[in-house]
């Protein structure tokens, strides 16, 4: 017997993500989903960002890794932080974020950063209830990661090109990077930074502040 159906396999995740989104919006919280390969500098970027805004902006972090609470330990000195260990899982999903939110005090929070598991493929298809996707790539990874893993860059609301200070030392073709990125996403803003050195971050801080203010005002 043949049964024809139309069942979106990600429906459960998407429905839960929609609940998370409305729960966060009720509180006026702007939520970012940071995605990159392992080692591209997401945690360092967050350290700089949390420290920059300090008490001026209510901030909280959910951080996902396969194992250890090392990232949460790094970030907890700056803001409220919950670590999710996926125990081998290659991405965060909406259920994990919903559980993490239950343990996070959201009073006074204006911006929630979700640092996804380092991976350019799997995290991209799972809606976490975020308002914006942040794609981070560092010059040490090579410019071809844009063309090879296109979906993240296609769906990113902002792209950070990190470790720009290492450009003289690594074979990163910047023109090719921009050409490939423009093919995939012709409208996404790109911010060049050296997060570990604190360089170029003003444009990123301004982007976060502007989007947060917009979300809080609505």
């Amino acid at each position: 017997m043949r049964v024809d159906v139309v069942h979106n396999v990600l429906k459960l995740n998407d429905a839960l993500a929609a609940q998370i989104r409305s729960r966060l919006h009720e509180r006026g919280i702007f939520t970012l989903n940071l995605i990159s390969a392992p080692g591209s500098g997401k945690t360092t970027l967050l350290e700089r960002t949390l420290a920059h805004f300090g008490e001026r902006l209510g901030q909280a972090v959910i951080v996902g890794d396969l194992a250890t609470s090392r990232d949460a330990e790094r970030l907890a000195q700056f803001a409220r932080c919950v670590q999710i260990n996926t125990d081998g899982g290659c991405h965060l999903d909406a259920a994990m974020v919903a559980n993490a939110l239950d343990t996070l005090d959201l009073d006074g929070v204006e911006v929630l950063y979700i640092e996804n598991v380092g991976n350019l493929v799997c995290p991209v298809g799972f809606d976490l209830g975020h308002d914006a996707k942040v794609g981070v790539i560092s010059v040490t990874e090579g410019e071809d990661k844009v063309a090879k893993y296109p979906r993240l860059w296609r769906e990113a609301d902002v792209v950070l090109l990190n470790k720009i200070d290492l450009l003289p030392y690594v074979p990163f073709d910047r023109d090719r990077f921009y050409a490939d990125l423009r093919d995939i996403n012709g409208t996404v803003p790109v911010i060049e930074v050296a997060a570990a050195k604190g360089e170029g971050l003003e444009a990123w801080f301004a982007w976060v502040a502007e989007r947060a203010q917009k979300a809080n005002g609505e």
Partner: peptide, 12 residues
């Protein structure tokens, strides 16, 4: 962008 279940066949 989606993953959609479109058909299931069952034993008669």
């Amino acid at each position: 962008t989606d993953l959609v279940l479109t058909r299931v066949e069952l034993e008669d």
